[in-house]
Design a protein around this nucleic acid. Structure first.
Length: 591
RNA sequence: CGGGGAGUAGCGCAGUCUGGUAGCGCACAGCGUUUGGGGCGCUGGGGUCGUAGGUUCAAAUCCUAUCUCCCCGACCA
């Protein structure tokens, strides 16, 4: 491709709207353009990267028996009503009516559609297992898109779904997907890690998220350097400290005027935060057994030195949704914001959930449910009890690893993919059943697996750039060679040499972007660095006089001169080295 | 949805407080010069100042409403 013909416009300055490196570089290198909040166009260079990423996904999915299909982006409401998600999902789903007034939505994921497909196609265990996938557009009307391609509303996702006759068969297949996912990311030059994740509302039994560790990530990952334990903070556990062994002391009211925070309380009374209990007031939407949902006031209690983990709490009480309670709701149950404890509150419609460390912690300081007053020596069992005792606090750096007790560490990560044992939630709802060997009708057991291609592309940039621009891994670089021709009309012998080398590279099947523009060397070099192809080849008058051209590795910065008649070999050598580097990242993973 | 910021040429910005016929840099077109890390000179094209009302002799500037975008938070199947 000739740069003079390429539909591109590189930018010298960072667009004002971009904050994070990948967003700035994608815009500056002319790979994408934003059309609206969270809605992007992929321009020719960006499109080539995206296409290569998707081709890698295809190959890895095919390698584990996947078959590619395309499902619609517009879904009839009827399918989503059958799964119930038409009613469960809020404004994230874009809905509309057709000319006849029928309800539709834009697909935010495709469990409903594909389960309906399976329901129609599958009758017998003989047809199982199989895995279908597609690479297709999703639309989720996110409340807040951000970070360029990191979090968008319209995006392309590789979503795969496997169908099995038994949980055992799904269990056997899941590790293959796990390995295939590592292969996808590593072949894209991304060293992602897998973490345990929340199965929550998807109703599955096991799930992993693949995380690209970068400060721009929206998730917090808790990890142990010693034993390799790693989990999303939403589900991460830790070994809780052993509380002091003390005999319960008499409950004692203490005036604490104006002290309504844990930090203030600990300072005021001269006790460590670990000797206090804090109350968090929430309202949960809980689904009853008959399917109806009801709101319940949730009174959560955790130790003062720890933070509530809402995901754990929601799972512990099977809440569909949690929101902070309003002050008047808090007072209605007899508690006082800032001075709350479960002692003496009205318990009728209140669900008291305490962290499992609370019953073991004697003589805590807790609120007295009236302004400016706390209790000393609060003891679980004697002074109050709970409806549920569970682990509901968030793991944090410094906490002890649940496996090896070493101090845990936290990092930020971008979720580039996830895999999920779905089970029979959708097959039961959508009537996707099969007849087993014994003639029994059973629901198909499902798994689902997703990777966002744009987010993956942005994550690769986050981890592969320098102050000059992007450094594409060779596997997904839009082209492999950036050929800089430094000749102009007056130095036509240089132009001719560059043209000839461009021809030879192309003939040799080497993907080349030929900068044939009438620009100064600096402009071309800067664009080459910005666009970030693995190899830069410079053809200039100075070198030609000695019969050489300059070959530069974008990643390492290594520069060498090669004879004009050995350009192809020279380029191939550098590219081979880059491919070898990616291959070296591949390795076996065990679950 | 809560908090903060911003909409002026393709991009980055000044001008707004204090109303008076819209400007700078880059980019773009032409010419010349230059030619291995974003050169220089001359000439030129391009903006109903987000939109709609209002105040005024006069509005980018003041008032009202509204839309959009970005950041932090909430949310994220």
């Amino acid at each position: 491709m000739r740069m003079s013909k390429l539909f591109i416009r590189t930018l010298r300055e960072d667009p004002a709207e971009a904050e994070i490196p990948s967003h700035k570089l994608l815009l500056r290198a002319g790979m994408v353009r934003q059309v609206a909040a969270g809605i992007f166009e992929f321009l020719p260079l960006g499109q080539r990267v995206k296409h290569k990423i998707e081709q890698i996904m295809r190959e890895e999915m095919d390698a584990i028996g996947g078959q590619e299909i395309t499902m619609p982006i517009v879904h009839p409401a009827e399918l989503w009503k059958r799964s119930g998600r038409w009613y469960e999902i809020g404004d994230d789903m874009a809905r509309f009516k057709d000319r006849n007034g029928r309800d539709y939505c834009l697909g935010m994921t495709h469990e409903e559609v594909i389960t309906d497909l399976a329901a129609q196609m599958v009758d017998s265990y003989r047809q199982l297992p199989f895995m279908l996938y597609q690479i297709q557009t999703k639309f989720r009307d996110e409340p807040r898109p951000r970070g360029g391609l990191i979090r968008v509303r319209e995006f392309t996702m590789k979503d795969g779904y496997s169908f099995h006759a038994s949980f055992e068969d799904l269990d056997a297949y899941y590790p293959k997907v796990y390995q295939a996912y590592f292969n996808v990311f590593r072949r894209c030059g991304l060293d992602a890690i897998a973490v345990e994740s929340d199965v929550g509302m998807m109703g599955g039994t096991m799930a992993h998220e693949f995380m690209a560790l970068t400060p721009v990530g929206e998730d917090t990952i808790i990890l142990c350097d010693r034993c390799g334990y790693r989990a999303n903070r939403q589900v991460a556990t830790f070994l809780k400290p052993t509380p002091p062994d003390e005999a319960p002391l008499p409950l004692e009211e203490v005036a604490t005027p104006g002290v309504d925070t844990i930090a203030g309380l600990a300072a005021f009374l001269g006790v460590p935060e670990s000797r206090t209990a804090k109350a968090i007031f929430l309202v949960a939407e809980i689904q009853a057994e008959d399917g109806s949902t009801q709101e319940r006031f949730v009174f959560a209690v955790v130790r003062g030195d720890m933070d509530l983990n809402e995901t754990k709490l929601a799972n512990a009480i099977k809440a569909r949704r949690l929101r902070p309670a309003h002050p008047d709701e808090i007072r209605a149950i007899g508690a006082e914001p800032g001075y709350g404890s479960p002692i003496g509150i009205r318990r009728e419609n209140v669900l008291v959930v305490v962290d499992d460390l609370i019953p073991r912690s004697p003589n805590l300081v807790a609120g007295a449910n009236k302004p400016d007053t706390h209790y000393r020596n609060v003891n679980y069992g004697r002074d109050f009890t709970a409806d549920r005792v569970a682990d509901i606090v968030a793991a944090a750096p410094g906490h002890a690893c649940p496996v090896c007790e070493s101090p845990l560490r936290a990092e930020r990560g971008v979720e580039v993919g996830n895999i999920f044992k779905l089970g029979t939630k959708y097959s039961e709802a959508m009537g996707a059943t099969f007849q087993d060997e014994d003639g029994q009708i059973r629901p198909i057991v499902m798994g689902c697996y997703g990777i966002g291609s744009g987010r993956l592309m942005a994550s690769v940039i986050e981890l592969n750039h320098d102050p000059h621009g992007i450094i594409w891994p060779v596997s997904i670089a839009p082209y492999h060679v950036y050929l800089v021709g430094l000749g102009t009309a007056k130095a036509h012998q240089v132009v001719e040499a560059a043209d000839r080398i461009y021809f030879e590279l192309t003939q040799a099947g080497i993907e080349t972007l030929y900068d044939d523009r009438d620009e100064r060397a600096g402009v071309k070099f800067n664009d080459a660095d910005l666009i970030g192809l693995p190899v830069r080849l410079t053809v200039g008058g100075r070198g030609l006089e000695r019969g050489v051209v300059e070959l530069r590795n974008r990643r390492t910065g290594e520069t060498q001169e090669v004879p004009v008649d050995r350009v192809i070999q020279g380029v191939r050598a550098v590219l081979d080295q880059e491919w070898a580097r990616l291959r070296a990242m591949l390795k076996e993973e065990t679950l």
